[in-house]
Design a protein around this nucleic acid. Structure first.
Lengths: 247, 247
DNA sequence: ACCCAACTTGGTCAGCCGACCAAAAGTAAG
DNA sequence: CTTACTTTTGGTCGGCTGACCAAGTTGGGT
């Protein structure tokens, strides 16, 4: 009833839609439900948006960013690599447990969008950005902690996204927080193991003998010789040191 | 038109529904579409099923099993551990690339079912079975290859499920087969690193000094007892075997 | 031959959906 | 005040959905 501009109403409708999506899911976000949530008559809807799709598109393209970005938390300079990775993961995971509905609707939107060839691009685009964001975080971690990843960053980024996504999905189903956190912690150990210290004096790449380069060229089946030494990593130092030299 | 028993029609309808689900998705599986696919009149539907839900339930509870079970392939006794894990994963992955629609509808059904408190149990149940199956495979691998996992099997199983699920979801979005396989291969390396040879004479856990325990005590307060000893990572086996008997 | 139970058919029903629109109500400029 | 405009209202439209049912059809047992 109060007189508002189109822009204001669009905004209110978007917010209302977002609330419904998170609370009641993708299927519940009808034009009528959205208008009711925003306290408007249904007729208003097509005065502010030409399509229902137009609204959903704007949500998918816009709000998702704000909600999801910075999913990976800050990286500490000190402490063990495992803790650093673990804390970064935990920052994401806290958002999952704090707002499961939000993440649930992301999967719903994703699957819904995948069926629609017209807007399937959106899912691809969002996932691409997601991937880039994580890859950026990996670079950041590498710089802050002066390490290199022993797997190409894009592959590692995909692994991280995979883990966070898969774990979230599983959590939405069984809500087993303890199991999820345990698995996440174990993944953190695995990922931390991909960090290799950068030697103090950097050795120019061409100076490294070919046989020293871990052969983890990306490709499919011939599994990279992820150098098993480098992979060993968080080896508890004390016992190892106690091993007597072989005669 | 041909005269059939109720049981026969139920069967045909289930098959038709399954075809539609895989081909056109969850939302397309209306009673009319299913009957059309089965070449029947729509009125027949409620003569064979009381509900649309009854049919979907039967599908979710029944057919999924057949399609999904044995997702993890056989394990070879020979070759490297990495290859063994990789091959097991590849067996699953081939099904993903062969029938993306099938896996896509599984996510749709999962998310749809999660919104319905009445039948949300189904998703939980299916995921539980999934988890058990993978855990069983892990046991099988451990036995065949005479190794132990340095992470509790249930946690490791969750990690495997997480990886396969997350990777599948990502693949459904961007269809990047090469990237997916590369990530999968990298995961295979990670998982293989959790295998520890069973020493001829096992060293009892209590014999390991406490200070040898790495301090990455998995975060979240209530993390289950992922036995921290066991967690102590992929120490290259040779040196371990060389540990002299305690005096 | 009959009959009854099982099956089939075509149609109907209420409900929800997205979309649309004519007309009323308000508002600002001239 | 009048005009030109934006916004608001209430209602309608066609389409699709799950569900239902009364009347017809068929075929096996008696």
């Amino acid at each position: 009833m109060p007189r508002l501009t189109v822009a204001q109403r669009r905004d209110l409708l978007l917010q209302a839609a977002w609330r419904i999506l998170v609370r009641d899911g993708y299927a519940a976000a009808t034009t009528r439900a959205i208008c009711a949530e925003a306290g408007m008559k249904q007729g208003v809807f097509h005065y502010c948006f030409t399509n229902r799709d137009e609204l959903l598109l704007e949500i998918a393209a816009g709000l998702l960013d704000a909600e999801i970005s910075a999913s990976i938390g800050a990286v500490s300079r000190d402490g063990s690599m495992i803790d650093a990775v673990n804390n970064a993961f935990a920052a994401y995971w806290d958002t999952v447990e704090a707002e499961p509905g939000l993440h649930q609707v992301l999967y719903e939107i994703t699957t819904a969008v995948l069926r629609d060839p017209r807007i399937g691009e959106i899912a691809r685009f969002q996932y691409g950005r997601y991937l880039e964001g994580v890859a950026g975080s990996l670079d950041q971690i590498a710089e802050i902690r002066q390490i290199e990843w022993d797997v190409p960053r894009d592959i590692l980024a995909r692994q991280v996204v995979t883990v966070l996504d898969g774990l979230t999905l599983h959590y939405l189903v069984d809500r087993d927080s303890a199991a999820a956190r345990a698995a996440l912690a174990s993944f953190a150990v695995d990922f931390a193991a991909h960090a290799r210290d950068i030697p103090a004096r950097a050795i120019p790449a061409h100076a490294i003998p070919a046989h020293a380069i871990p052969a983890h060229a990306i490709p499919a089946r011939d599994i990279p010789a992820r150098d098993i030494q480098a992979c060993g990593i968080p080896v508890p130092d004390i016992p190892i040191r106690q091993i007597p030299e072989p005669a």
